[in-house]
């Protein structure tokens, strides 16, 4: 029996070996490198192998880091809020209104934006919102404005719009899955027990959809905190987020230990937030056997 288990384990190990090697090479080693760098001392165009906590002290004492970290959290929070609030009705429509035989087509349509690269989707918003962009030239040709509107681009609002669009399918799909799992007779039971459609939604549908909503929150929130492309292109460099700061330290200023310390700190903050969400999620997940 033990040998059978052993060979089974060996077989399993062989099967996961390629992705394991990939994960070690491309994820674990770079992460460990960054972690190591963050405790080393910076020298001119080199790294001095000398243990120090100075980088972390610098990060925590740096008002720029604090501002950019808070801005990143704020922007990511806003993007998450906008994305999830807009995604919920779409997921609800998909689950409750669309006929079962048409659902596959709708899901297919929702994933169409993924056919182009993330970079191009972000750049597209620059084309739409820009000084000579679609909106401005459209309004100008209609004679509504004389001078192009300059507040469309290069601000927090445009970053939020761009990221919310880019992450919409990531929010729609988990919420849709959670809604699909709801036994429809529960909604009839809610009505049968005297509640209106709206109250049934509030007391039955929404609580049962919460695991999907929390999954959507995590999936949108975590990657948007560290987003680099959108603040650069859509923010025009005027509204840098924490990823831009890391990039500057790593490459422009060439202080890799400090850049690593910023990255590790940001990761730790995101990690703590994710754990809080998971804890919340478990409360709701308890519901599902």
């Amino acid at each position: 029996m033990a040998t059978a288990n052993g060979s089974e384990a060996a077989q399993g190990l062989r099967m996961i070996a390629p992705p394991l090697v990939y994960a070690i090479l491309m994820l674990a080693i770079p992460l460990l490198t960054i972690l190591t760098y963050s405790f080393l001392t910076d020298g001119y165009q080199t790294i001095i192998r000398e243990f120090t906590l100075e980088n972390y002290r610098a990060v925590w004492g740096d008002p720029i880091f604090r501002t950019l970290m808070l801005r990143s959290l704020f922007v990511a929070g806003l993007v998450t809020l906008v994305t999830v609030v807009l995604a919920f009705p779409v997921a609800y429509f998909l689950s409750f209104v669309v006929a079962p035989r048409h659902k596959a087509v709708w899901i297919f349509l929702i994933t169409i934006p993924f056919w182009t690269s993330y970079l191009i989707r972000v750049f597209l918003w620059k084309v739409i919102l820009g000084y000579n962009g679609v909106i401005n030239s459209g309004l100008k040709s209609l004679g509504i404005i004389e001078q192009p509107l300059s507040f469309l681009l290069y601000n927090t609002g445009s970053i939020v719009v761009t990221l919310a669009h880019a992450y919409a399918p990531f929010a729609i799909l988990p919420i849709y899955v959670a809604l699909e799992k709801i036994d429809r007779s529960l909604l009839e039971a809610g009505r049968d027990l005297g509640e209106s459609r709206l109250m049934t939604f509030w007391r039955v549908t929404l609580p049962l959809a919460m695991p999907g909503v929390l999954a959507a929150v995590l999936i949108v929130f975590i990657p948007t905190i560290g987003d680099y492309v959108t603040p650069t292109l859509i923010g025009g460099g005027k509204i840098p987020m924490v990823a831009n700061l890391i990039q500057a330290q790593m490459l422009d200023i060439d202080n890799k230990p400090l850049g690593s310390a910023i990255a590790v700190t940001a990761m730790a903050i995101v990690g703590v937030l994710a754990l809080v969400f998971l804890f919340l999620n478990r409360r709701f997940l308890k519901v599902r056997q």
């Binding site: 036994d183 007779s185 529960l186 009839e188 039971a189 049968d192 039955v204 609580p207 049962l208 709701f284 519901v287 599902r288 056997q289």
Partner: peptide, 11 residues
Amino acid sequence: MVFQSYAIFPH
């Protein structure tokens, strides 16, 4: 109504 699946709210 008592539903065939009982429709007990799982949450």
